[in-house]
Design a binder for these strands. Structure first.
Lengths: 337, 337
DNA sequence: GTGAAAGCGCTAACAC
DNA sequence: GTGTTAGCGCTTTCAC
């Protein structure tokens, strides 16, 4: 910059004004401006963005927090849960001039730095593991933060949240099974125990069973278990003709194991997944699934975050995004035996 | 930091040394150090990473360049090509203390800033669209750059490259079809015309046909076309009993269209994809595919890049990663008619 | 063992 | 319309 200024016969101030001043608040003569631009071009001058960020105390970067109860998900295998969410975040951040950073290193080990050292203008945290350690970390967060998969009750209202309408989603799924004639209905829990949103879904499910006067007992909830052994045992002798699940991942696992054990989907058991990414379309049979609009949720999280970054006085918002039901091939009418 | 220094009764210099000086090159008395740490903790002091980066002229961030002949790929739909590559990059960058940034905004429009304004310590560019515009952009790149999907001939040897062994891959695929008894063999080109690696695969294919004294003519190469109309027409009246493809994406398209048109895979045509991500496992029939070890390639690209960042005198390297062949369900022995 | 001072590159407030 | 000056927070060299 100094070199450019020297070459153009002006001061760095003028160079800065000519090349970077967006609003024309300060006037520079056309001739000078031209000279500056020429010099810059000849010297192949580029602003040092690190210096500018430092000066402006902003980075135009959003960080995505992994860990803390919810590991970084692989993008390339299994459910497209995380990939969908990220596509939404990246699309929206892009539209608004922000870039998106994954920093698993710092974060799954200890996100303290990333949430407080100024490297990001804001953060998106997808995790619903609400434990003391995480709450303490949150207190240190100096940048705006948006939580995905948490609801208003999280974080003392100090952070914005985005979550799908689990009540509606589970209702849609259950009603679908009821309409197909099923009455023996269970729920398969994701293998990840710390997935607290799954617990919410289970509670809603149990309440709805009561509401519909459907029987339920200790066997109504199937824990897949980390090694899927629970699911294995269940499929040796399934107790239901229809099941809801708390994730498409575990629903996919169930389809795979059922196939191996000769349990016919949907003829023996109708299965409804949760999420409804493209993963459901490629499974065979294609997986009927409650749809959680992840891409939209990612985009909304980015939008809320950037609004907060731009105006720190913005009120915290708590979005509940409607679910849908995508009927594919894994559910069918109850067969009389 | 000033506050911490004041509280501990020392200067910022000492604070910096106590809290951030990795090598014990400078000694600070234990008592002082303790006082500083205490003050920092009480004031909840965090280093301002922007300031440090500015000072150190490094960011510990790697940028992933989209655009320039190869759009940002969606993570959540279609082939897992990009997701696999990114998982590899992120894993390796993580291991080495770097974070990974997607910045489609800046980059697909005009990457000039990102490649020269210091926001990244290095860049990974996945594109093989080698045109004049891109070569000019490259000249402005001030940070180390690693290209994925380019070979040594690219960029005058000034950048490191990572590519799969296309020769070997196509040979593996072709030999598989030959062993199954096929002699009428074609190649389906990806719908993306600017995908120059596909052109390399085509050339290799044509040379191999010659080598094996197999007939080939203008119909041996099937252009899928952007709207897949070429593939539609081809499947109305397929001329071959086996085809290689230049991507699993177009192979997947072919499977879908064949299903709709009643062309049986693999009985009517054996299809071999290219890439072999999990996408091939979920297609029905499962897609036999040349495997391009994308995750490894992403990791290797990150490794080369970080080595160059750490020591700018490092020689440029040009990796050629071996391919494999994953035999699944979309290929079978030639049926006599 | 500790402090003083300089400077990374940029921008903005304030002269003139 | 242009220049002067100060300072963002940090690290490092050099002096004591």
């Amino acid at each position: 910059m100094r070199d450019v200024a020297a070459k153009a016969g002006v001061t760095p101030t003028v160079v800065s004004r000519v090349l970077h001043n967006k609003a024309n608040t300060v006037r520079v003569s056309a001739a000078t401006a031209e000279r500056v631009r020429e010099a810059a071009s000849e010297l192949r001058y580029r602003v040092n963005i690190t210096a500018r960020n430092f000066r402006e105390q902003q980075t135009l970067m959003i960080g995505v927090l992994h860990g803390m109860g919810f590991e970084r998900q692989p993008l390339s295998v299994g459910s497209r849960y995380f990939a969908s969410l990220m596509d939404g975040v990246v699309d929206e951040a892009f539209r608004r001039g922000y870039s998106v950073t994954f920093c698993p290193s710092l974060l799954s080990v200890d996100p303290t730095g990333a949430i407080s050292d100024g490297r990001f203008d804001g953060l998106i945290w997808y995790s619903t593991d609400i434990n003391e350690q995480n709450m303490n970390l949150l207190k240190n967060c100096r940048a705006p933060l948006v939580m995905v998969h948490a609801n208003e009750s999280f974080g003392d209202g100090k952070v914005s949240t985005v979550i799908c309408d689990n009540q509606q989603g589970i209702e849609l799924g259950l009603n679908h099974l009821l309409e197909l004639g099923h009455t023996k209905i269970g729920m398969v829990m994701d293998r990840n125990r710390s997935f607290t949103e799954a617990q919410m879904r289970r509670e809603i499910f149990e309440q709805l069973l009561d509401k519909h006067n459907l029987p339920h007992d200790e066997f109504s909830i199937i824990n897949a278990e980390t090694d899927l052994s629970g699911l294995e045992r269940y499929l040796d002798n399934p107790l239901h003709t229809g099941v809801l699940t708390t994730s498409e991942t575990v629903a996919g696992d169930m389809v795979t194991i059922a196939d191996r054990k000769g349990v016919k989907i949907p003829d023996d058991i109708s299965i409804i997944g949760f999420d409804s990414t493209e993963y459901c379309d490629v499974l065979r049979p294609k997986l009927t699934s409650v749809s959680q609009p992840l891409r939209l949720m990612g985009a909304e999280a980015a939008r809320l975050l950037i609004e907060e970054i731009s105006d720190l006085s913005t009120r915290r918002q708590h979005l509940v995004i409607p679910c849908g039901l995508d009927i594919r091939e894994s559910t069918t009418t109850l067969k009389k035996k």
